[in-house]
Amino acid sequence: MHIGVLTLKISLPGCRSLKEKRQRMGGLHERFGRNPAVAVCESADRDRLESSEWSFVVAAISPQKVESLCSEIEDKLQRTVDGRVLDVSRELL
Rank of each mutant, 00 (worst) to 15 (best):
R79K: 04
V40E: 02
S68E: 15
L77E: 01
E20A: 10
M1W: 07
S52K: 00
E91Y: 12
L77Y: 05
K21W: 12
A44D: 15
R31K: 15
C70Y: 14
G83S: 02
D87E: 14
V58T: 09
Q78G: 13
S52L: 13
V40T: 02
R90C: 11
K65A: 10
W54A: 04
T7N: 05
S68N: 15
R79H: 03
A59E: 02
S62G: 09
R46L: 01
Q78K: 14
Q23H: 07
R84F: 10
Q23K: 07
K76N: 11
D75C: 09
L8C: 04
R90M: 09
V5K: 04
C70N: 05
L92M: 14
P36F: 14
E67S: 14
M1D: 12
G83A: 07
L28S: 05
L28Q: 09
R84G: 08
I3S: 08
Q23F: 05
E53M: 10
D47P: 00
L12R: 00
E67I: 01
A60K: 09
G83M: 03
V88M: 08
E50P: 00
S89I: 07
A39L: 08
R31N: 07
L77F: 03
G27N: 13
D82A: 10
R84N: 04
E74D: 04
A44E: 14
V58D: 02
S55N: 06
P36E: 13
L8K: 00
V85D: 02
R22W: 00
G4I: 03
V58M: 13
V57Q: 12
C70K: 02
A37S: 13
C15W: 05
V57W: 15
E67F: 08
L12G: 01
F32C: 02
D87L: 09
L92P: 11
E42S: 03
R46Y: 05
S52Y: 11
R34Q: 14
I3Q: 10
R16L: 07
G83V: 00
E53W: 03
T80L: 15
V38I: 15
S43W: 10
Q64D: 15
I73S: 05
E50I: 01
C15Q: 06
S89K: 15
H2Q: 13
L86R: 12
E74H: 12
E72M: 08
G27W: 08
R79C: 09
S11F: 09
A37T: 04
E50G: 01
K9I: 06
E91I: 12
R34H: 10
C70Q: 13
R34Y: 05
R79Y: 09
I73G: 01
I3R: 15
T80P: 00
C15G: 06
E53R: 15
L77H: 07
T7Q: 08
R22T: 06
F56N: 03
V88C: 14
K65D: 12
N35A: 09
L69R: 09
V57R: 12
A37V: 02
D87V: 03
N35D: 15
E30M: 07
